[in-house]
């Protein structure tokens, strides 16, 4: 489900959620450990959205539960954007997350990355930037109207498990990367 923040400007999403906005001041925020987030933007309509999901088992095959779950997460986001006037052919993507936060999730991370790359290729959605893998968690702030995304790496020791429905702490003074 999409998540509306108080004040209508900053929206924080958690695993299994997505949010779409064409509000010029809106920011979509999330904290990623092993999970992956896809930020989609449609520059002509000036609308964007982000989801946050995890394919838990990381099994292959187009009928595997994971691929279905991931495709579903992507479809909900794309459909909501199209419903609000985005043109499918103009969508672009930026992809973040799938960090190897724990040994347990290392194979899952690779599977999540592979799924998203394959999905975007199959749906002809250009991926303009990606920051995936590694051993850090990531805080992502996405401006849906401009398509700008900012990533802050969160030290592994500070990273909260992103499966837990807890509000993440305020961002630390870490380097910011622009995409």
């Amino acid at each position: 489900m999409s998540h509306i923040a108080m004040g209508g400007k900053v929206v924080t999403i958690f695993q299994g959620e997505f949010h779409v906005s064409d509000d010029p001041g809106a920011v979509i925020n999330t904290l990623l450990g092993s999970c992956i987030a896809v930020c989609l933007h449609e520059p002509q309509r000036r609308i964007g959205g982000m989801n946050h999901f995890l394919l838990p088992e990381g099994q292959g095959g187009s009928t595997s539960p994971d691929v279905k779950q991931g495709a579903h997460a992507m479809e909900l986001l794309i459909n909501d954007m199209i419903k609000r006037g985005a043109m499918r052919s103009k969508l672009t993507a930026k992809v973040f997350g799938a960090g190897r936060i724990t040994q347990r999730f290392s194979y899952v991370s690779e599977a999540n990355i592979a799924f998203v790359r394959q999905f975007l290729r199959a749906e002809n959605i250009p991926c303009l930037a990606e920051s995936v893998g590694g051993e850090s968690a990531r805080r992502i702030r996405f401006e849906p109207v401009t398509g700008d995304a900012r990533q802050m790496l969160v030290p592994r020791s500070d990273a909260k498990e992103d499966l837990r429905p807890v509000r993440p702490p305020p961002p630390a003074a870490n380097p910011v990367e622009l995409f």
Binding site: G61, S62, T63, V67, A71, E75, I78, A122, E123
Partner: peptide, 16 residues
């Protein structure tokens, strides 16, 4: 289905 991934999921399920 307009999404190729979804088409593949459905048709592969039918194959199964």
């Amino acid at each position: 289905d307009d999404m190729s991934t979804s088409r593949a999921i459905i048709t592969n399920t039918l194959d199964e």
